[in-house]
Design a protein around this nucleic acid. Structure first.
Length: 435
RNA sequence: GGUCCCGUGGAGCAGUUGGUUAGCUCGCCACCCUGUCAAGGUGGAGGUCGCGGGUUCAAGUCCCGUCGGGAUCGCCA
């Protein structure tokens, strides 16, 4: 028995096919039974004239419930009366593969918290399914670009022997007779790949943050997109790579899903021009303060309101939704960010903001062993736990830089959704570990 | 972790200032129904008002605690 997708039915007019899917809607009338069946590619009406006693199809449709899994064999018939594509299937055989219980726990009005409890049902809905189709295209486009540009895709360890770089909270795991930690980023390992002579490295993988952050843009487990490039001339090379990456991603999403994204989410997929605008942190702060923004105390960093305002300003002035903020002060950046000779109080670093949200952090890295140690000590860090990382820099490490981008944030902003939970298959937060 | 908001049939919401049998829409069940297509019509079932305690003659409503959800800040991809 060969399966035919609903989207392919127009090519099978007057043929007998078998569709596999779920019962979407039942309209059982005295003489006719109308049944809508949905697969992941669309919806089709199945129309059966009742045959009375002994009619097994009639009986099957009387018993079946919404969301039951079915296989239906029948003839594809053109019928202008049918508002759904002018096609219907006249059934010859109906098999209820797996019935659904009559009372569904969610419907189209259900709130997000309960939808997440029943996420496998929630994602059957076309709009939810679209999220992961878009995500697939995003990752495919990233792999196009990285493949073209000579990257090697690695999968770095997620079990670590020490807590990693930034001191952000880590999850501890029992590891035989010792304690391991779930990786907060692949930062150290991708730099080890650079030291290994892998010229450009790239990973899409999970990271874990034991942060009690109850916001719409945080999760305790999320997917990071990380890249590291060797032999760069400066941090500009990293930003330029990210521009190429994101331009391609948005182009591919626009081509394959632009209309559907607008239909389901009301969002427009805009392919950006490059280069994206750049502002140093100092310039960004000056611009923001001119608008009246001034969070409590003198800050060297942007708060979320500052990020939103800066994006709005830049969009107004340049038409760009993206903006790089560069040269963050050393005080707010990790010890391994390179400090320029001309001004060692700042770093050769950047954040990329999109639609008011930080989606990427990146930098050129300090590649000289002595300076790394000095910068770590200056920040009050013990170097002994970092030995495995620092050893990479003792044997001719080239200049390099990289970035970390949050896939969930990208998707959330791309689709215009209010929370990262909407774009995560199975969300993990401080209070959610199920399903 | 801070601040604020919310929790009422399966879902989404009403339920001024405490007071009759807690209401509506959708869903569910039953019956009806000339091709329905957000189908329609008639009838029915279903709610410890998150949980615990308090005030009061009387609490869904007021007070305290607690659990859960959301917004936002802290934090950050």
């Amino acid at each position: 028995m060969t399966r035919t997708l609903v989207a392919d039915l127009p090519s099978h007019l007057d043929e007998t096919v078998t569709v596999y899917g779920w019962i979407n809607t039942l309209r059982l009338q005295r003489r006719m039974q109308f049944v809508l069946v949905r697969d992941h590619t669309g919806l089709i009406q199945v129309t059966h004239a009742r045959g009375g006693e002994g009619d097994e199809i009639e009986a099957a449709f009387e018993r079946v419930t919404a969301e039951s899994a079915v296989k239906i064999t029948g003839k594809v018939v053109g019928n202008p009366q049918v508002k759904l594509g002018g096609l219907e299937i006249v059934p010859e055989r109906v098999e209820v593969v797996s019935p659904a219980e009559p009372k569904l726990p969610i419907d189209e009005h259900t709130g997000l918290d309960q939808r997440l409890d029943w996420r496998f049902l929630d994602i059957r809905r076309p709009s939810q399914h679209l999220v992961f189709a878009v995500q697939t295209t995003v990752e495919q486009a990233m792999r196009e670009v990285t493949a073209e540009e000579g990257f090697t895709e690695l999968h770095t360890p997620k079990l670590m022997g020490t807590a990693s770089e930034s001191g952000a909270e880590v999850f501890k795991v029992d590891y035989f007779e010792r304690t391991a930690y779930l990786a907060q980023s692949p930062q150290f390992y991708k730099q080890m790949a650079i030291a290994a002579g892998i010229d450009k490295v790239f990973e899409i993988g999970p990271v874990f943050r034991a942060e009690p952050s109850f916001t719409s843009r945080h999760a305790t487990e999320f997917t990071g997109v990380d890249a590291e490039l060797a032999w760069i001339d400066g941090v500009e090379d990293v930003m330029a790579f990210e521009e190429r990456l994101l331009q391609r991603v948005l182009r591919r999403v626009s081509e394959r899903h632009g209309d559907a994204v607008t239909e389901h989410f009301g969002a427009r997929v805009v392919v950006p021009e490059t280069p994206f605008p750049r502002l140093t942190m100092a310039d960004a702060l000056t611009k923001l303060r001119a608008t009246g923004w001034d969070p409590e105390g003198a800050k060297d960093d942007l708060d979320p309101e500052g990020e939103r305002r800066l994006c709005a300003l830049v969009a107004e002035e340049t038409g760009h939704e993206f903006v790089f903020v560069t040269r963050f002060p050393a005080s707010v950046r990790p010890f391994y960010h390179l400090r320029p000779e001309d001004d060692p109080t700042v770093t050769e670093s950047f954040d990329l903001l999109w639609k008011g949200v930080e989606i990427t952090t990146g930098a050129q890295r300090e590649h000289r062993h002595e300076r790394l140690i000095a910068q770590a000590r200056e920040k009050g860090m013990e170097t002994e736990p970092l030995a495995g990382y620092l050893n990479c820099f003792r044997f001719g490490t080239p200049p390099h830089g990289g970035l970390g981008l949050g896939l969930g944030r990208l998707l959330m902003l791309l689709l215009g959704l209010p929370t990262i939970r909407e774009v995560t298959f199975l969300f993990r937060g401080p209070h959610r570990l199920e399903p």
